[in-house]
Design a protein around this nucleic acid. Structure first.
Lengths: 190, 190, 190, 190
DNA sequence: CATGAATGAGAATTCATTCAT
DNA sequence: CATGAATGAATTCTCATTCAT
């Protein structure tokens, strides 16, 4: 990808996190990226396209991050903890994509092919994890999407609030939160 | 509250859910509410104030809904299920506030006194539930905020995806999801 | 004249002096006058009419002030000094009409009959003064309008700058300025 | 200075003279200048800035005009007559700045450094004239500001009324008016 | 008569997009 | 390819005026 295009995407991401959709102008993006306003239109159809491509760009980043260091050979709980922590770290790290999905929600959906592929890839390892867990009776017999919400969305939500300063999660609490997420999806004898 | 003001808030809420912050104009709000553009400014300082007051308005609605039919005399698990279902119903019902909190996130915070009071009220019963649960050793010893995310945000997230059609949650799955949320916060013998 | 009408004119004058034409609204006038916005339209056709009537109102005040204590029997120089000081005092006094004519200049002229009469009356005594002065060879043989500018506009200009704080005119300077204005219009042997 | 900026200033000046502050809109300025409305904002911060810059622009023009053809080596009276006529011509000529200072009076003052410099420059030669005149006992011992009002403001006022058609000043009267202004500030034996 | 809520045309200003250089 | 001045439609907000109470 061209250096200019990267700089434009990076600038857009930064400004989007700071000001939200309303409140960023193409002029601002151009200035932040150090290019002329017209240059943006060499790489992007229009403002919507810029935002959409940024969305795909971040999704691609997320897809990679989430599955990092996870091997299908590992024990289930180890895989779960690594994925959980991948999400946590991705959200809380310094160079994290500072945007959460909510901020893209009002975009007129393009439902691009690339996006579909990315989302599939993003959850491939998670899907296998859930499938195996259910197959051996360890996990609750629920749809993968529901299991995902119950265990991993909590993580993302927790991380976002931690980053935003709503509250702080220390190391002990973090470990307990992982266990809690695990407890949410495994079967318990009552 | 004046009829006109209510209509303006209702119209704003509808449009906000449809188009997000960017993409709604005061003209659109006026038209949707059936008032003249200038009329909005009799009731709201400016666009930001309109959005902020809408936020407070919805928060107030949510605060009431969430605590409905919950009594501090009930057993812990019953209280938890009612609260969980209150959130679920509030989000999935026909006349629900169509907006989720994420859509207010980029708003410049006013941190009004009223807002603080509302948020306190909103979680008063939830707070007592968590405190009692921890006191008797049933719940994990985590901050109430964290317990809230682990058990109730999952509910809201699930409900939102159910409504948006990302996936459907049937009655059996719903019951299992409540149990899973409960499992997330109670202590288990290992 | 009705009390309400007077209050409206007074309020308009005050606001006009503070903000100029642009920058005063009928709402502001109503608030300052302590009446409802609609009430203004009982007494004035529209905004232009309000301003025009205010103009006439002030002109009437000025016309009276300027000729105060001046009798056609007095010696020429005494009459001149009284008129000069009338202008000075009118402009610098506490309850002076705070507006100068320049602020009315862009008003769409109505050239009302009343206005014509007032302006005639305003300068009647001044006219007689100049005519007598020229008849006896004391004054320069110039049109009264020109004599007026040379001697009395200087006074008004001086007073305005004194009030606005551009510079301050002490008693000695004031007396010298009157003499200078007198010098401007009388004939000198060279 | 850019051609567009000049055209905008010129257009503003024209409209200001015709309609006053209230009553000119940015759209009108844009149309008169033959540019798009948005273009004005490339050169001027906002409407106030446009008006302020116009003020400075005109002041600069006036400063130059007033001192034209005046040399400190000339006799006092000659210098006075030239300055007086400079003001007269500047005000009555075809391409004169059509605006008088009064029209800027309601503008919120910026008191810029540039403005101070210009006003100093504007009156430098006038200041020297008055100082020398007082030093040799020819002029009345009054502040330069007061001498200025007594002799030169009369000129500007006369010229304005001449241009506006309030009355007409023929060549003989003009010469007499200069002498009258001179008489106003020189010492006379009584 | 007096009120002031409501109106909607018009104001200032912004900003996505184009295009001559 | 890159630029950034120019555009003008769209946006937020104001305010003279009306009219039901």
């Amino acid at each position: 990808m061209s250096d200019k295009k990267k700089r434009i995407l990076k600038a857009t991401e930064k400004l989007l996190a700071m000001y939200g959709f309303h409140g960023i102008s193409m002029q601002m993006v151009a200035k932040e990226a150090g290019v002329a306003a017209g240059t943006i239109y060499r790489y992007f159809e229009d403002k919507d396209d810029l935002l959409q491509q940024l969305h795909d760009h971040i999704l691609s980043y997320v897809a990679n991050k989430i599955s990092q260091n996870v091997s299908d050979e590992m024990p289930l709980e180890q895989r779960f903890r690594i994925i959980w922590l991948n999400i946590w770290n991705m959200t809380t790290q310094e160079d994290a994509p500072i945007i959460n999905r909510g901020q893209f929600e009002t975009l007129p959906r393009r439902e691009s092919h690339e996006q579909r592929l990315l989302e599939k890839k993003m959850f491939a390892k998670v899907d296998r994890l859930f499938n195996e867990g259910k197959a051996c009776g360890l996990f609750k017999p629920l749809d993968n999407e529901i299991l995902g919400v119950l265990s991993l969305e909590s993580c993302a939500c927790l991380a976002r609030k931690h980053v935003n300063g709503v509250f702080k999660v220390n190391d002990a609490a973090l470990d307990a939160a992982i266990s809690a997420s695990w407890d949410a999806i495994i079967q318990h004898k009552h």
